[in-house]
Simulated scan of single mutants.
Amino acid sequence: MPLTIGTNTYVSLADADDILSFKLHSGGWKSTSEQDRERALIEATAAIDRLGFNGSIARYDQPLGWPRLRMRDREGRSIDPNVVPQVVRTATCEMALHLLTAPELKPSPAVSRKRVGDLEIQYRATLPDPVPLSVRQLLAPFLAGSPYSVELIP
């Protein structure tokens, strides 16, 4: 599937290359094939869209979650409902880099059972968050349920 802005990605390969060229420890991006970088952008866009955002999509027939209506940035400024904000584009690039360079997620080697005197606690294995903290922090003002987001009531 070709990389198509607005259909399966928020950012072009050239723009992603520019954005990530300024990021520390992004050597894994440029050393990866163009085809894999495009795939990473498509997967990153899909992962970001699964996070759940405040507001609503701008057009009922748009394939992606952005642009959105009734959105505000971290400072409370209205976001143009006809554009994908730069912060979403940057988060997409960071997620794509993470997909290419992070080790595969495996269940944590948590203690399965701990006993202290009469108290016993049993844990279940958990998977680490597949979305890096840096991406969640960038998108926090827009995420539904985030303590940093503001839902506007029409």
Rank of each mutant, 00 (worst) to 15 (best):
residue 151 E to Y: 14
residue 28 G to Q: 03
residue 95 M to I: 07
residue 63 P to Y: 10
residue 71 M to P: 01
residue 85 P to T: 00
residue 120 E to C: 14
residue 35 Q to N: 05
residue 31 S to V: 09
residue 60 Y to L: 12
residue 52 G to M: 03
residue 134 S to V: 15
residue 27 G to F: 13
residue 86 Q to Y: 15
residue 141 P to E: 06
residue 82 N to L: 11
residue 151 E to V: 15
residue 18 D to L: 13
residue 143 L to E: 07
residue 43 E to V: 04
residue 7 T to L: 10
residue 35 Q to W: 10
residue 73 D to E: 09
residue 55 G to C: 02
residue 42 I to W: 07
residue 75 E to I: 05
residue 95 M to N: 02
residue 79 I to K: 04
residue 105 L to F: 13
residue 91 A to C: 00
residue 31 S to G: 06
residue 39 R to P: 00
residue 16 A to Q: 07
residue 67 P to W: 09
residue 21 S to P: 07
residue 7 T to P: 06
residue 49 D to C: 12
residue 1 M to I: 11
residue 141 P to Y: 09
residue 71 M to K: 01
residue 43 E to N: 05
residue 21 S to V: 08
residue 43 E to G: 06
residue 115 R to Q: 15
residue 58 A to R: 00
residue 23 K to W: 13
residue 91 A to E: 07
residue 11 V to T: 02
residue 92 T to S: 08
residue 137 Q to T: 14
residue 100 L to T: 01
residue 35 Q to T: 12
residue 38 E to H: 05
residue 85 P to F: 03
residue 60 Y to F: 13
residue 77 R to N: 05
residue 36 D to E: 15
residue 60 Y to S: 10
residue 56 S to L: 11
residue 53 F to Y: 12
residue 138 L to E: 04
residue 6 G to K: 02
residue 121 I to M: 14
residue 96 A to K: 00
residue 98 H to F: 15
residue 44 A to I: 00
residue 5 I to T: 07
residue 51 L to V: 03
residue 77 R to A: 03
residue 49 D to G: 01
residue 36 D to R: 12
residue 107 P to L: 11
residue 78 S to G: 03
residue 125 A to Q: 13
residue 53 F to K: 04
residue 125 A to R: 14
residue 41 L to P: 05
residue 45 T to M: 06
residue 154 P to H: 14
residue 41 L to E: 06
residue 52 G to Y: 03
residue 99 L to V: 08
residue 136 R to L: 15
residue 24 L to C: 09
residue 15 D to M: 12
residue 77 R to W: 04
residue 75 E to M: 10
residue 106 K to I: 13
residue 12 S to R: 01
residue 85 P to E: 00
residue 123 Y to G: 02
residue 74 R to C: 08
residue 35 Q to L: 09
residue 8 N to Q: 07
residue 19 I to Q: 00
residue 146 S to L: 08
residue 149 S to P: 06
residue 126 T to R: 14
residue 99 L to W: 05
residue 119 L to R: 10
